[in-house]
């Protein structure tokens, strides 16, 4: 056990949670609904990559060709060439998964949630749970109930200050930080980003400004779903097998993170995600409480909600007449 190891592990787990939590919090902030099908978008992302990598007949042939070429042209070792090819295919399939998830998010919003705009929050919530089961069952019918592996390559290990750290942790960490900074800048600096803030605050007033509220909501679902696809890649990179309900637990955890940070708040989701990553990683390193790591995450949620019901960075609206 080493402190640097714990820090990197915490931050990369937290980064993954933050990616998912952002989807929850942005959709909540703008459409004022809890999209409980969000976790399952991760699953769809993972299966999309599975299809791209394992199920399309020509990918293996193409992969072998590329690897051969790398060996012949660049003089690489066979093993290295194969690994590079797998990584490259993984990244290409990630891009495809991002596109598929964005489209799926927009379609789900259009078909399931848009007709319910203005309906009671409970109806929307139940619909979201229905969409969640629909996606899970569809995946089970198509891909079967068994766990499957999707190879996305071995990223190796580095030595940092004398400690061996898996590179995939560093990649997860760096990518999530870049995405979080990018998203923050997008919201803060662009016209569309400011429009998102305006819509989350007051849909009517936003319409009076000429903002197309429906378009902004669709965009929000697209962004959230793209981040979910990224989270799916972060799961595959750890070499964890995928199942049709793989999105459920990270989904609930990330939702917890979003609530801890203050649901609706973008920086809140980031802080909540990272915090949850830290708590979980530290918990797994202490043998006595390690089996209860999930319970501990939820305990933290309960405590924070008791002390500050609006979450760490959530704000209570002050109204002035």
């Amino acid at each position: 056990m080493n402190i640097l190891d714990i820090i990197i592990n915490s931050l990369s787990t937290g980064g993954t949670y933050a990616m998912i939590a952002l989807g929850y919090t942005m959709v909540y902030g703008i459409a004022k609904m809890l999209n409980f099908a969000h976790g399952d978008i991760i699953m769809v992302g993972a299966y999309t990559m599975l299809v791209c990598i394992n199920r399309i007949p020509y990918t293996t042939k193409l992969g072998n060709m590329v690897a051969d070429m790398l060996v012949k042209q660049c003089g690489l070792e066979e093993k290295v060439a194969a690994n590079i090819t797998v990584i490259a295919f993984g990244i290409i399939s990630l891009i495809i998964a991002v596109i598929v998830c964005m489209l799926l998010g927009m379609i789900v919003e259009k078909l399931a949630y848009k007709p319910l705009r203005g309906a009671s929050p409970l109806a929307v919530l139940i619909t979201a749970i229905g969409v969640s089961y629909l996606l899970q069952s569809a995946a089970q019918i198509i891909f079967g109930p068994n766990q499957q592996n999707v190879p996305v390559g071995d990223f190796g290990k580095s030595k940092l200050f004398g400690v061996e750290i898996s590179n995939y942790l560093i990649i997860t960490l760096v990518v999530s930080v870049v995405v979080m900074v990018g998203l923050t800048l997008f919201i803060k600096l662009t016209r569309t980003g400011r429009a998102m803030v305006a819509v989350s605050e007051d849909k009517g007033a936003a319409q009076l400004m000429g903002i197309n509220v429906n378009a902004i909501i669709t965009l929000t679902f697209a962004i959230g779903s793209a981040l979910a696809a990224l989270a799916a890649y972060f799961t595959l990179i750890k070499n964890v097998g995928i199942t049709n309900n793989m999105g459920a637990m990270p989904g609930i955890k990330a939702f917890t993170a979003a609530v801890i940070g203050g649901i609706g708040s973008v920086p809140g989701a980031m802080v909540g995600g990272i915090l949850l990553g830290v708590i979980e990683t530290v918990a797994t390193k202490i043998p006595v409480i390690a089996p209860y790591k999930d319970a501990i995450s939820f305990l933290v949620l309960v405590i924070i909600l008791l002390v500050k019901p609006s979450g760490l960075l959530g704000k209570k609206r002050r109204e002035k007449v």
């Binding site: 400011r194 803030v197 305006a198 605050e201 007051d202 009517g204 007033a205 009076l208 609206r317 002050r318 007449v321």
Partner: peptide
């Protein structure tokens, strides 16, 4: 009515 300015901006 009620101005409805964007309070967070």
């Amino acid at each position: 009515e009620g101005r409805r300015i964007f309070q967070e901006l």
